[in-house]
Simulated assay, not measured.
Amino acid sequence: MKKLWIWIALLLVLIITTIVIIVHQKQSTNHHVRQTNFVNGQTPTLFLHGYGGSANSETFMVKQAEDRSVTRNVITAFVSKEGNVTLKGHFNQDAVNPIVKLELEDNKQGNLEENAKWFKSVLVKLQGEYKIKQFNFVGHSMGNLTFAQYMRTYGEDASLPQLYKQVNIAGTFNGVLNMNETVNEISVDSNGKPSRMNPPYNQLRVLKDIYKGKDIAVLNIFGDLEDGTHSDGRVSNSSSQSLKYLLGNSPKHYKESKYQGKSAQHSQLHENKEVANELIDFLWKKN
């Protein structure tokens, strides 16, 4: 009887082992199938939060990219109040579609030139560590204005990594509600030209020339609560849509995408699965 139980136990172990192997192989196959839908590049994508935000603001979007098997390579770049950059994590030399989550210690810094310098410092750090030549950008809220200032100041510096694709979410390009704009005060025409230009919008109009001829693709995402404010509750649609006029016909590809309803609220946009999926497809899906 004892031998019989031993044989039964061995048989159960064999069955369980076989099931584990089959499940593992199936998961590996599914991962491979999903991965073939995306490019297998080494261009890093940098995510930048908005005013008062942190790397946590980027967590949902990055997690969606991981869940869709776009990448398994994610690190965080911390920028101190003094502008010093520390990388948490490490990319392998053959890292596929690596992602860098940025976190600014001084996350309420209103000096755009200082913010732009900090963003440049992250790129220089990545360039030194990984020899990167180009990058993608994803920004939320004021992070987009920081990046616009970066491109204005450093966008023509050929010694730096060059922008390939950018995704703007709830961009504050021409103001913020209840700060320098009231509800439904400013409109944009079909070209994205605003009826009034708030600082530093006029200074950013040089972006059209900086982007020209560089084959940069742009996805501009914004939210409308559908409550009559034509805004996401914090940023007007006109402020976000005014990016179109700043860039003109210079990008290789420019697309606007409006989300509607409660899930299109300003801070909910970076927690919105549809938004995450759209930016993932835009950045990495094969044509």
Rank of each mutant, 00 (worst) to 15 (best):
L4K: 11
L4W: 13
V13L: 15
I19H: 15
V20D: 14
Q25N: 10
Q27A: 13
S28D: 12
N30F: 15
H32N: 11
R34D: 14
Q35A: 09
F38H: 07
N40S: 10
Q42N: 15
H49V: 07
E58N: 12
T59L: 12
T59V: 11
M61R: 02
V62Y: 08
V62F: 11
T76P: 06
S80D: 15
K81V: 15
K81Y: 13
G89A: 10
V96N: 06
V100P: 05
K108I: 04
Q109I: 01
N111C: 04
N111L: 05
E114L: 06
E114I: 08
V122K: 00
F137W: 10
G139S: 05
T146V: 13
F147L: 03
M151A: 01
P161T: 09
Q162H: 04
Y164E: 09
Y164D: 08
V167G: 05
I186C: 07
D189N: 01
K193F: 02
R205G: 01
K214A: 14
A217V: 10
N220F: 04
N220I: 00
N220G: 00
I221W: 03
G228F: 05
T229F: 13
S236A: 15
S242D: 02
S250F: 12
P251C: 11
Y254S: 04
Y254T: 14
S257A: 09
G261M: 12
K262F: 10
S263Q: 13
H266L: 00
S267I: 09
S267D: 06
L269V: 03
E271A: 10
E274C: 06
L279I: 12
